[in-house]
């Protein structure tokens, strides 16, 4: 029985599988160094056929989750810190199952995988969230100076007491990423991007809208009521710590954009001081 320690944003999952190691594409999330105390130990098996033709079926209670999708059968239990996973012999199917499992663990640790570009500029971390094509990567690339781009597609954010940390999400299928992503950093603000016409604009939104903007950009969430409730709570706790705003992004107005972002943050920081 071979055991592989996988890690994302400080969350460890020990995969116990008979036979060979996990496929090489997962080496990007293999933990290095001392074995950690895993949040879950998952017994993994490959089967020729798993739930053929089935749709998504999820069930759960607080702290447990079962999901069956074509090619995947998974049961996770936080109290027992263990789970079972069976998939067909397909790396992409296994990767999807692990992403759902990690996201489920993260939302219970007051964090989430977010569809966002993350960057660190000076001492501040920024997340720009939005659907494909919203301008996340463009916005990050327009940052003046030499910011560290954490990732331009997915990041993990985690609330820790009175701060929120921005974590790089390892590249699942390209472990030899060069340059390596920067270390985790404090997240200063979360911007939900919308298309602007001619002028870029930052707009404050209500508390519930802030929670919604974070939630809507959470990815790999299991469609199960307890998990969704935990994700909503996580989003709500995060928005209580950092500014969350809508950012209408208009490419013609890019010159003023970063000045506006910095000014918005200065105003928020001076108001909360």
């Amino acid at each position: 029985m071979l055991k592989t320690d996988l890690e994302i944003a400080g969350i460890h999952v020990l995969i116990s599988a008979p036979g060979d190691n996990l496929p090489g594409r997962f080496s990007g999330i293999c933990a290095a160094g001392e074995p950690a105390n895993p949040a879950l130990t998952i017994d993994y098996r490959v089967a020729e056929s798993v739930n053929p033709g089935s749709g998504i079926s999820t069930s759960g209670t607080p702290g447990s989750l079962s999901f069956d999708i074509q090619g995947i059968s998974c049961e996770l239990d936080l109290a027992e810190r263990k789970g079972k996973l069976v998939t067909v012999n397909d790396d992409t199917v296994l990767e999807y199952a692990l992403k759902v499992a990690f996201q489920w663990l993260l939302i219970h640790e007051c964090g989430s995988i977010i569809h966002a570009a993350g960057l660190i500029k000076g001492k501040r971390g920024y997340a720009f969230a939005g659907p494909p094509g919203a301008g996340k990567s463009t916005l990050a690339s327009l940052a003046p100076g030499e910011p560290d781009i954490v990732n331009d597609e997915h990041v993990a954010i985690i609330r820790e007491d009175d701060s929120v940390t921005l974590h790089p999400l390892p590249a699942w299928a390209s472990p030899d990423r060069n340059p390596a992503p920067p270390p985790p950093a404090p997240l200063s603000a979360f911007f939900a991007i919308a298309h602007g016409e001619s002028e870029s604009m930052i707009t404050g939104v209500t508390a519930a809208e802030q929670t919604r903007r974070i939630f809507e950009n959470m990815v790999f969430l299991p469609p199960e009521i307890n998990s969704l409730g935990a994700a909503m709570d996580t989003a709500d706790r995060i928005r209580k710590i950092i500014p969350v705003a809508r950012l209408d992004f208009a490419l013609p107005d890019r010159e003023n954009l970063w000045n506006g972002i910095e000014q918005y943050l200065e105003n928020k920081i001076s108001k909360s001081a």
Partner: peptide
Amino acid sequence: DCAFREIEGETFIVSSS
């Protein structure tokens, strides 16, 4: 099958189905 939270007078609802 809806999860919901009331936040400062507004209600945020997500349908799991």
